[in-house]
Protein backbone atom coordinates (compact mmCIF):
# COMPACT_ATOMS: atom_id res chain seq x y z
CA UNK A 1 0.00 0.00 0.00
CA UNK A 2 1.28 3.41 -0.89
CA UNK A 3 2.37 5.60 1.99
CA UNK A 4 1.42 9.24 1.99
CA UNK A 5 1.79 11.94 4.60
CA UNK A 6 -1.73 11.00 5.74
CA UNK A 7 -1.18 7.25 5.79
CA UNK A 8 1.95 7.09 7.85
CA UNK A 9 4.13 4.10 8.39
CA UNK A 10 7.69 2.92 8.05
CA UNK A 11 9.89 5.70 6.74
CA UNK A 12 7.64 8.48 7.98
CA UNK A 13 8.29 10.73 10.92
CA UNK A 14 5.93 10.43 13.83
CA UNK A 15 5.10 13.50 15.87
CA UNK A 16 4.90 12.48 19.49
CA UNK A 17 1.84 13.83 21.24
CA UNK A 18 3.54 14.16 24.62
CA UNK A 19 6.57 16.23 23.57
CA UNK A 20 4.88 19.62 23.73
CA UNK A 21 4.12 19.36 27.42
CA UNK A 22 7.44 17.73 28.31
CA UNK A 23 9.64 20.36 26.67
CA UNK A 24 7.68 23.11 28.44
CA UNK A 25 7.94 21.50 31.88
CA UNK A 26 4.20 20.89 31.86
CA UNK A 27 4.11 17.12 32.24
CA UNK A 28 2.27 15.62 35.19
CA UNK A 29 4.36 12.99 36.90
CA UNK A 30 3.11 11.44 40.13
CA UNK A 31 5.20 13.72 42.34
CA UNK A 32 3.58 16.72 40.62
CA UNK A 33 0.14 15.73 41.90
CA UNK A 34 -0.92 17.81 44.88
CA UNK A 35 -4.34 17.36 46.48
CA UNK A 36 -6.06 19.49 49.14
CA UNK A 37 -5.28 18.21 52.63
CA UNK A 38 -2.60 15.88 51.31
CA UNK A 39 -0.27 14.20 53.83
CA UNK A 40 3.22 12.82 53.18
CA UNK A 41 4.55 9.38 53.95
CA UNK A 42 8.09 8.12 54.53
CA UNK A 43 9.09 4.49 55.04
CA UNK A 44 11.42 3.02 57.64
CA UNK A 45 13.43 0.14 56.15
CA UNK A 46 15.36 -2.71 57.70
CA UNK A 47 19.14 -2.37 57.87
CA UNK A 48 19.33 -6.18 58.19
CA UNK A 49 18.80 -8.77 55.46
CA UNK A 50 17.39 -11.27 57.92
CA UNK A 51 16.30 -10.51 61.49
CA UNK A 52 13.53 -11.18 63.95
CA UNK A 53 11.55 -8.12 64.98
CA UNK A 54 11.22 -8.28 68.75
CA UNK A 55 9.39 -5.01 69.09
CA UNK A 56 8.80 -1.57 67.59
CA UNK A 57 8.46 1.56 69.71
CA UNK A 58 6.75 4.32 67.77
CA UNK A 59 5.84 6.57 70.72
CA UNK A 60 8.53 9.20 70.17
CA UNK A 61 7.76 9.42 66.46
CA UNK A 62 4.04 9.75 67.18
CA UNK A 63 4.69 12.61 69.61
CA UNK A 64 6.80 14.52 67.08
CA UNK A 65 5.07 17.77 65.99
CA UNK A 66 3.56 17.42 62.52
CA UNK A 67 3.30 13.63 62.63
CA UNK A 68 -0.23 12.41 62.05
CA UNK A 69 0.25 8.65 62.33
CA UNK A 70 2.82 5.88 62.43
CA UNK A 71 1.86 2.65 60.70
CA UNK A 72 3.40 -0.72 61.60
CA UNK A 73 2.82 -4.27 60.42
CA UNK A 74 1.02 -4.95 63.66
CA UNK A 75 -1.48 -2.18 62.96
CA UNK A 76 -2.01 -3.45 59.40
CA UNK A 77 -2.48 -6.99 60.71
CA UNK A 78 -5.42 -5.76 62.82
CA UNK A 79 -7.07 -4.81 59.51
CA UNK A 80 -5.88 -8.00 57.80
CA UNK A 81 -3.58 -5.93 55.54
CA UNK A 82 -0.11 -7.03 56.71
CA UNK A 83 0.35 -9.47 53.82
CA UNK A 84 -0.69 -9.19 50.21
CA UNK A 85 -0.79 -11.42 47.13
CA UNK A 86 1.78 -10.86 44.37
CA UNK A 87 1.18 -11.11 40.62
CA UNK A 88 2.89 -14.54 40.71
CA UNK A 89 0.58 -16.38 43.09
CA UNK A 90 2.90 -15.69 46.01
CA UNK A 91 2.40 -13.53 49.09
CA UNK A 92 4.57 -10.73 50.41
CA UNK A 93 4.63 -8.63 53.55
CA UNK A 94 3.28 -5.10 53.26
CA UNK A 95 5.06 -4.09 56.47
CA UNK A 96 7.13 -6.69 58.31
CA UNK A 97 5.54 -8.29 61.35
CA UNK A 98 7.42 -11.39 62.53
CA UNK A 99 10.77 -10.83 60.84
CA UNK A 100 12.49 -9.02 57.99
CA UNK A 101 13.53 -11.11 54.99
CA UNK A 102 15.69 -8.72 52.97
CA UNK A 103 17.73 -5.60 53.53
CA UNK A 104 15.61 -2.54 52.89
CA UNK A 105 12.33 -4.28 53.70
CA UNK A 106 9.52 -1.97 54.77
CA UNK A 107 9.12 -2.02 58.57
CA UNK A 108 7.06 1.07 59.44
CA UNK A 109 5.72 4.24 57.85
CA UNK A 110 5.32 7.77 59.15
CA UNK A 111 2.52 9.97 57.86
CA UNK A 112 3.10 13.68 58.45
CA UNK A 113 1.99 17.11 57.36
CA UNK A 114 5.10 17.60 55.23
CA UNK A 115 7.78 15.30 53.77
CA UNK A 116 10.66 16.73 55.83
CA UNK A 117 8.80 16.01 59.08
CA UNK A 118 7.95 12.49 57.92
CA UNK A 119 11.65 11.75 57.32
CA UNK A 120 12.69 13.35 60.61
CA UNK A 121 10.30 11.12 62.52
CA UNK A 122 11.70 7.93 60.97
CA UNK A 123 14.76 8.48 63.15
CA UNK A 124 12.57 8.45 66.25
CA UNK A 125 11.24 4.94 65.69
CA UNK A 126 13.04 2.28 67.72
CA UNK A 127 13.06 -1.23 66.29
CA UNK A 128 14.43 -4.08 68.37
CA UNK A 129 15.99 -6.49 65.87
CA UNK A 130 17.53 -9.86 66.55
CA UNK A 131 19.80 -10.39 63.55
CA UNK A 132 19.80 -13.82 61.90
CA UNK A 133 22.23 -15.23 59.38
CA UNK A 134 21.63 -13.53 56.02
CA UNK A 135 21.80 -15.45 52.75
CA UNK A 136 23.53 -13.58 49.96
CA UNK A 137 24.23 -16.28 47.38
CA UNK A 138 21.98 -18.89 45.76
CA UNK A 139 24.61 -21.55 46.55
CA UNK A 140 24.37 -20.91 50.28
CA UNK A 141 20.58 -20.78 50.07
CA UNK A 142 20.48 -24.39 48.88
CA UNK A 143 22.77 -25.83 51.55
CA UNK A 144 20.91 -28.12 53.96
CA UNK A 145 21.88 -26.09 57.04
CA UNK A 146 20.95 -22.73 55.51
CA UNK A 147 18.42 -20.72 57.52
CA UNK A 148 14.93 -20.79 56.01
CA UNK A 149 13.84 -17.37 54.79
CA UNK A 150 10.16 -18.06 54.10
CA UNK A 151 9.16 -19.33 57.52
CA UNK A 152 5.77 -17.74 56.84
CA UNK A 153 5.05 -20.55 54.34
CA UNK A 154 3.57 -23.49 56.19
CA UNK A 155 5.75 -26.60 56.05
CA UNK A 156 8.62 -24.80 54.30
CA UNK A 157 11.91 -26.43 55.35
CA UNK A 158 14.32 -25.08 52.71
CA UNK A 159 14.86 -22.13 50.37
CA UNK A 160 14.10 -23.93 47.14
CA UNK A 161 11.49 -22.13 45.01
CA UNK A 162 11.08 -23.94 41.71
CA UNK A 163 12.64 -26.18 39.08
CA UNK A 164 12.07 -25.44 35.44
CA UNK A 165 13.32 -27.45 32.48
CA UNK A 166 12.99 -27.02 28.76
CA UNK A 167 14.46 -28.61 25.63
CA UNK A 168 14.92 -32.09 24.23
CA UNK A 169 16.88 -33.97 26.88
CA UNK A 170 17.30 -37.21 24.93
CA UNK A 171 18.61 -35.55 21.78
CA UNK A 172 20.93 -33.32 23.80
CA UNK A 173 22.34 -36.25 25.79
CA UNK A 174 22.94 -38.09 22.50
CA UNK A 175 24.77 -35.08 21.02
CA UNK A 176 27.03 -34.95 24.07
CA UNK A 177 27.64 -38.72 24.03
CA UNK A 178 28.70 -38.53 20.37
CA UNK A 179 30.69 -35.29 20.65
CA UNK A 180 34.36 -35.10 19.69
CA UNK A 181 34.87 -32.30 22.10
CA UNK A 182 32.94 -30.73 24.99
CA UNK A 183 33.68 -27.30 26.40
CA UNK A 184 32.20 -25.97 29.60
CA UNK A 185 31.99 -22.57 31.22
CA UNK A 186 30.88 -21.27 34.62
CA UNK A 187 29.82 -17.67 34.50
CA UNK A 188 27.83 -15.04 36.30
CA UNK A 189 25.37 -12.86 34.44
CA UNK A 190 25.38 -9.92 36.85
CA UNK A 191 22.42 -8.28 38.44
CA UNK A 192 21.16 -5.06 36.93
CA UNK A 193 18.62 -2.55 38.08
CA UNK A 194 16.31 -0.80 35.60
CA UNK A 195 16.67 2.46 37.58
CA UNK A 196 14.13 4.60 35.74
CA UNK A 197 15.01 8.25 36.29
CA UNK A 198 11.76 8.79 38.20
CA UNK A 199 11.57 6.60 41.30
CA UNK A 200 8.36 4.85 42.39
CA UNK A 201 5.61 6.58 44.31
CA UNK A 202 1.93 7.30 44.56
CA UNK A 203 -0.74 9.67 45.76
CA UNK A 204 -3.53 7.66 47.37
CA UNK A 205 -6.89 9.29 47.90
CA UNK A 206 -9.62 7.24 49.53
CA UNK A 207 -12.74 9.34 49.72
CA UNK A 208 -14.28 8.79 53.16
CA UNK A 209 -17.75 9.72 51.91
CA UNK A 210 -17.96 7.50 48.82
CA UNK A 211 -15.37 4.84 49.65
CA UNK A 212 -13.93 5.41 46.18
CA UNK A 213 -10.13 4.93 46.06
CA UNK A 214 -8.22 6.96 43.48
CA UNK A 215 -4.50 6.28 43.32
CA UNK A 216 -2.05 8.12 41.08
CA UNK A 217 0.75 5.64 40.71
CA UNK A 218 4.07 5.22 38.92
CA UNK A 219 2.76 2.02 37.40
CA UNK A 220 3.30 0.26 34.10
CA UNK A 221 0.44 -2.12 34.89
CA UNK A 222 -2.51 -0.16 36.31
CA UNK A 223 -5.09 -2.83 35.49
CA UNK A 224 -3.21 -5.69 37.15
CA UNK A 225 -2.55 -3.47 40.14
CA UNK A 226 -6.22 -2.62 40.45
CA UNK A 227 -6.95 -6.35 40.69
CA UNK A 228 -4.38 -6.82 43.46
CA UNK A 229 -5.73 -3.80 45.32
CA UNK A 230 -9.24 -5.19 45.09
CA UNK A 231 -8.03 -8.52 46.52
CA UNK A 232 -6.09 -6.88 49.34
CA UNK A 233 -8.82 -4.46 50.33
CA UNK A 234 -11.73 -6.80 49.66
CA UNK A 235 -13.32 -4.11 47.49
CA UNK A 236 -15.01 -4.44 44.10
CA UNK A 237 -12.74 -3.24 41.27
CA UNK A 238 -15.08 -0.41 40.29
CA UNK A 239 -14.40 1.21 43.66
CA UNK A 240 -10.72 1.52 42.74
CA UNK A 241 -9.19 3.76 40.11
CA UNK A 242 -5.47 3.54 39.36
CA UNK A 243 -4.14 6.49 37.35
CA UNK A 244 -0.77 6.21 35.63
CA UNK A 245 -0.07 9.79 34.61
CA UNK A 246 3.21 10.72 32.90
CA UNK A 247 5.76 8.11 33.94
CA UNK A 248 9.47 8.90 34.11
CA UNK A 249 10.63 5.59 32.66
CA UNK A 250 9.82 2.11 33.89
CA UNK A 251 11.71 -0.66 32.08
CA UNK A 252 9.85 -3.30 34.08
CA UNK A 253 10.70 -1.73 37.43
CA UNK A 254 7.20 -0.30 37.66
CA UNK A 255 5.19 -3.48 37.14
CA UNK A 256 5.12 -4.97 40.67
CA UNK A 257 2.88 -3.84 43.49
CA UNK A 258 5.24 -2.32 46.04
CA UNK A 259 4.30 -2.13 49.71
CA UNK A 260 4.56 1.68 49.68
CA UNK A 261 1.51 1.90 47.40
CA UNK A 262 -0.50 -0.30 49.73
CA UNK A 263 0.57 1.43 52.95
CA UNK A 264 -0.22 4.87 51.50
CA UNK A 265 -3.65 3.65 50.45
CA UNK A 266 -4.33 2.03 53.82
CA UNK A 267 -3.19 5.24 55.53
CA UNK A 268 -5.50 7.34 53.38
CA UNK A 269 -8.35 4.98 54.22
CA UNK A 270 -7.59 5.16 57.95
CA UNK A 271 -7.03 8.94 58.07
CA UNK A 272 -9.57 10.12 55.50
CA UNK A 273 -6.99 12.33 53.76
CA UNK A 274 -4.88 11.89 50.61
CA UNK A 275 -1.40 10.48 51.26
CA UNK A 276 1.64 10.96 49.00
CA UNK A 277 4.59 8.57 49.04
CA UNK A 278 7.64 9.17 46.84
CA UNK A 279 10.60 6.87 47.38
CA UNK A 280 14.14 8.20 47.11
CA UNK A 281 16.79 6.76 44.81
CA UNK A 282 18.46 4.70 47.52
CA UNK A 283 15.12 3.07 48.33
CA UNK A 284 14.47 2.47 44.66
CA UNK A 285 17.78 0.69 44.20
CA UNK A 286 17.66 -1.46 47.33
CA UNK A 287 14.03 -2.46 47.43
CA UNK A 288 12.46 -2.57 43.97
CA UNK A 289 12.65 -5.16 41.21
CA UNK A 290 15.99 -5.92 39.65
CA UNK A 291 16.90 -8.35 36.89
CA UNK A 292 19.42 -11.07 35.92
CA UNK A 293 21.86 -12.26 38.58
CA UNK A 294 22.15 -15.71 37.04
CA UNK A 295 24.89 -18.07 38.15
CA UNK A 296 25.22 -20.15 35.01
CA UNK A 297 26.92 -23.31 33.88
CA UNK A 298 27.03 -23.93 30.13
CA UNK A 299 28.32 -26.87 28.03
CA UNK A 300 28.77 -27.07 24.31
CA UNK A 301 29.07 -30.34 22.30
CA UNK A 302 31.24 -30.04 19.19
CA UNK A 303 32.33 -32.12 16.22
CA UNK A 304 36.06 -32.15 15.36
CA UNK A 305 35.44 -29.61 12.56
CA UNK A 306 33.85 -27.18 14.99
CA UNK A 307 30.20 -27.92 14.16
CA UNK A 308 28.11 -27.36 17.27
CA UNK A 309 25.74 -30.22 17.97
CA UNK A 310 24.45 -29.64 21.45
CA UNK A 311 24.04 -27.01 24.16
CA UNK A 312 23.22 -27.52 27.79
CA UNK A 313 22.92 -24.86 30.45
CA UNK A 314 22.00 -24.77 34.07
CA UNK A 315 21.31 -21.58 35.90
CA UNK A 316 20.69 -20.64 39.52
CA UNK A 317 19.18 -17.20 39.61
CA UNK A 318 19.15 -15.21 42.79
CA UNK A 319 15.53 -14.81 43.67
CA UNK A 320 13.41 -12.69 45.86
CA UNK A 321 12.04 -13.83 49.16
CA UNK A 322 8.71 -13.11 47.49
CA UNK A 323 8.05 -13.48 43.79
CA UNK A 324 6.21 -10.33 42.80
CA UNK A 325 5.70 -10.62 39.03
CA UNK A 326 5.05 -13.45 36.59
CA UNK A 327 8.35 -12.97 34.77
CA UNK A 328 11.10 -15.31 35.96
CA UNK A 329 13.52 -12.51 35.03
CA UNK A 330 12.34 -9.67 37.16
CA UNK A 331 12.35 -10.43 40.80
CA UNK A 332 12.75 -8.52 43.96
CA UNK A 333 15.60 -8.87 46.43
CA UNK A 334 18.43 -11.27 46.90
CA UNK A 335 18.29 -14.17 49.29
CA UNK A 336 16.95 -17.51 48.22
CA UNK A 337 17.50 -19.46 45.05
CA UNK A 338 16.00 -21.92 42.65
Amino acid sequence: MAQTEEIRGIGHRVRRVEDDRFIRGKGTYVDDVKLPGMLHMAILRSPYAHAIIRGIDTSRAEAHPGVVAVVTGELLAQHNLAWMPTLSYDTQAVLATDKVRFQGQEVAAVIAEDPYTAKDALELIEVDYEPLEPIVTPQRALEPDAPVIRTDKEGKTDNHIYDWETGDKEATDRAFAEADRIVALDTHYPRCHPAPLETCGCVADVNPATGQATIWMTSQAPHAIRTVFALVAGLPEEKIRIISPDIGGGFGNKVPVYPGYVVATAASLLLGRPVKWIEDRTENLISTGFARDFHMHGELALKADGTMTGLRSRSSPTRAPSTPTPSPQSSRWACSAS
Binding site: E18, D19, D20, F22, I23, G25, Y29, P196, G248, G249
Partner: peptide, 17 residues
Protein backbone atom coordinates in the same frame (compact mmCIF):
# COMPACT_ATOMS: atom_id res chain seq x y z
CA UNK B 1 13.14 23.15 22.98
CA UNK B 2 12.40 23.19 19.26
CA UNK B 3 15.48 21.08 18.59
CA UNK B 4 14.66 18.47 21.27
CA UNK B 5 11.23 18.09 19.71
CA UNK B 6 12.54 17.98 16.15
CA UNK B 7 15.39 15.55 16.82
CA UNK B 8 13.50 13.24 19.19
CA UNK B 9 15.78 14.18 22.06
CA UNK B 10 13.35 12.84 24.66
CA UNK B 11 11.23 9.86 25.52
CA UNK B 12 9.73 9.88 29.02
CA UNK B 13 10.67 13.54 29.43
CA UNK B 14 11.93 13.21 32.99
CA UNK B 15 15.54 14.18 32.27
CA UNK B 16 14.54 16.64 29.56
CA UNK B 17 14.28 19.91 31.51
Amino acid sequence: QAAFKEHHGLQCGYCTP
